[in-house]
């Protein structure tokens, strides 16, 4: 029996955003019946270019279904630029973590999202054609392994198998993966492509407050509510954002630090990197 978090169980037993968006702007399909899991992600944009609706269809185990449903929740309201930055780590974190052997479910989510965005941009589903297939059982290329290894700081074949399935079939490619890992970690990371985003303009205070409110509403509150908690904006003084956490969240001391961290990360990502979140007792 796998040790699933309550959030994984919840998104498995009561998945949200099941189905297909009508006339989607982007479609991403990854996985196959043979591999044991597959995900079809569809989304639609609103006039401002944000993801207005996202839906999924998944064949797979509980964590695959939960990861897919979580992903649709996460990307709703995002611009494509924001969505394109979501990684498998974000999906796993949103679910409160996944068992190591199930991390490939979160990777499948990231891949489907990439494929759907590329589909919107009129590109091939996945940039895998550049890579060379390492694992023939699951069709995993060296490029995919390198990306996942670097993003998740993976150093062993077992970890690569948990995250990509590569090496989990006949096992013939285990030596190749080992050699590939040695090569990856002896080389510096490839230079990142220039950021798509134009440099951010200086905001007025009113704009900043509005954006903070929007971000809390869209990015933070749904995640907390899923756990029975809530967040309230108390005050904004310069770059210090004071919030109060309520419900289940406020009674769980252990998660407090993580929670403030989570709020701060989201605000820094969507508003401005200088923000500091302070928690005040109501």
């Amino acid at each position: 029996m796998w040790e699933y978090t309550d959030k994984v169980k919840k998104y498995f037993t009561e998945p949200v955003n099941v189905g297909e968006v009508e006339n989607p702007d982007g479609v991403g399909e990854v996985g196959s019946l043979a591999c044991g899991d597959a995900l079809k992600l569809t989304f639609k944009l609103d006039e401002s270019g944000r993801i207005a609706d996202a839906r999924f269809q998944t064949f797979g185990c509980a964590s695959a279904i939960a990861s897919s449903s979580a992903l649709t929740e996460m990307i709703k309201g995002m611009t494509l630029e924001q969505a394109s930055k979501i990684t498998n780590k974000d999906i796993a974190a949103f679910l409160g973590g996944l068992p190591p052997e199930k991390m490939h479910c979160s990777v499948m989510g990231e891949q489907a999202l990439t494929a759907a965005i590329r589909n919107y941009q009129g590109l091939e589903p996945l940039p895998s054609e550049e890579g060379e297939v390492v694992c023939e059982c699951f069709g995993v290329t060296d490029k995919e392994i390198e990306k996942v290894a670097r993003n998740n700081n993976l150093h062993t074949v077992e970890e690569i198998t948990n995250f990509t399935k590569a090496g989990g079939g006949c096992g013939k490619c285990v030596d190749k993966i080992e050699a590939l890992l040695a090569k990856i970690w002896s080389m510096p990371a490839p230079t990142q492509a220039a950021p798509m985003a134009p440099p951010k303009k200086k905001m007025t205070n009113i704009q900043k407050i509005k954006l903070i409110e929007e971000t809390l509403e869209r990015e933070v509150r749904p995640a907390l509510k899923a756990d029975g908690g809530d967040i309230e904006l108390i005050d904004i003084a310069g770059d210090v954002v004071q919030v109060s956490l309520r419900g289940t969240c406020s009674s769980c001391a252990a998660s407090q630090a993580t929670l403030s961290q989570f709020v701060q990360t989201k605000l820094r990502e969507f508003v401005t990197p200088e923000l500091v979140v302070e928690e005040v007792k109501p």
Binding site: W2, F12, T13, G36, D37, G60, C61, A62, I65, E101, C137, F138, T161, K165, G168, G169
Partner: peptide, 26 residues
């Protein structure tokens, strides 16, 4: 695995030959 978890919620114990339950990926 998805079927087993749903059965398990109803108190029903069975097993599966699926990859996800076998501890391997096949």
């Amino acid at each position: 695995e998805s079927i087993l978890l749903m059965l398990s919620d109803l108190g029903i114990c069975a097993s599966s030959g699926s990859a996800c339950t076998s501890g391997s990926l096949e």
